[in-house]
């Protein structure tokens, strides 16, 4: 009887729990940006090869998610936002997550190498290494710059997509990287502002904890301003055009406006309206990235009709 109830606690994981380990929501961003990087590249790729490549880039992203959850299970347990993840909730063992993460990393890099080219496969391996070892294991718990440097891992997918098509790196792919790289800190700091206690409870040195919330508000504004030149440089590059430029003007103006609003008020004002400006800025930051890469896609499809582009 007691033996039966021991396995009856919902401890054995369902298929969905393993999918949860791969962070499907983060994956959607990886898929979209990698796809744009691949499509706008000047070398055409066979649609089936492109599909396979994106799939394995996504799987590599998922693998790094599983490895991140394996290493961070202790702090995930403390934070409200992450307490229901499969490992802290007790549905999947930490060792299982590690095994799944390592196996999927190997499969995804090898398969990307075989399907596309070994530069892209190696780049994916480097991205997983960067996210898991450099960000999760090394920097996340040590420096308030964790988000800034960790953002690089999330910024690599369009470069990998570009590498699938071209087999290399170029100015355009570096600018796509820069756009996501500069976008990540204000995006996460806005989240940290309204997810107040989570990070401090977990002992993660977020900027809000180490340098205070006023400094974080100013940091959001400065990064948002520094982001704009990269957006315009991308719009003026060979993958850009009038559509991307128009999108860059509108999106950056709105983004900076939101950041100014955040920088100008203090926590008392934010408490009064339950962090409305911060939450709005966070939501808009997601739209910012999707619309920016969407504009690149639109521009590219226009050029195939002899319109768009410079």
């Amino acid at each position: 009887m007691s033996d039966l109830s021991a396995i009856d606690h919902g401890r054995e994981a369902g298929f969905g729990d393993y999918v949860q380990l791969l962070k499907p929501r983060v994956m959607s961003l990886v898929v979209f940006t990698a796809m744009v990087g691949l499509i706008v590249a000047p070398v055409p790729v066979h649609p089936f090869v492109a599909f396979t490549a994106i799939l394995f880039i996504a799987l590599g992203g998922g693998a790094s998610g599983a490895l991140n959850m394996w290493y961070d299970a202790d702090i995930d347990r403390v934070m409200r936002r992450t307490a229901s993840r499969p490992i802290p909730a007790g549905r999947v063992g930490a060792g299982e997550a590690l095994a799944l993460g390592l196996a999927l990393s190997g499969i995804s890099c090898a398969m990307l190498g075989l399907a596309a080219n070994w530069f892209a496969g190696g780049f994916l391996a480097f991205t997983i290494f960067f996210y898991v070892v450099v960000y999760t294991i090394w920097l996340k718990r040590r420096t308030p710059q964790n988000i800034v440097i960790g953002g690089a891992a999330g910024a690599f997918p369009p470069m990998i997509g570009w590498a699938v098509a071209t087999g290399g790196i170029s100015v355009e792919s570096i600018l796509m990287f820069a756009l996501i790289f500069m976008w990540t800190p204000p995006h996460f700091w806005a989240l940290a502002l309204f997810m107040k206690d989570d990070y401090s409870n977990a002992g993660v040195p977020m900027l809000t904890v180490t340098h205070g919330r006023r400094a974080t508000r100013k940091h959001i504004l400065s990064y948002t301003i520094l982001l704009a030149p990269f957006a315009f440089a991308l719009a003026l590059s060979s993958v850009g055009g009038p559509v991307v430029l128009a999108a860059a003007v509108v999106l950056n103006a709105l983004f900076i406006l939101g950041a100014v609003r955040i920088a100008r008020r203090d926590d008392a004002a934010a408490e009064a309206d339950r962090y409305r400006a911060e939450k709005a800025f966070f939501r808009f930051s997601l739209a910012y990235l999707f619309l920016h890469f969407g504009a690149l896609l639109v521009e590219h499809s226009l050029t195939t009709f002899g319109l768009g582009g410079w």
Binding site: E12, A13, G14, F15, Y18, F48, V49, T52, L55, L114, A115
Partner: peptide, 22 residues
């Protein structure tokens, strides 16, 4: 368990189809 086995079966089937297509 059946759900998990079924899920894994589908994933492996899809993988085979993918390699074949490639």
């Amino acid at each position: 368990r059946r759900g998990r086995n079924l899920g894994l079966g589908l994933v492996l089937g899809a993988f085979v189809a993918l390699i074949f297509g490639l």
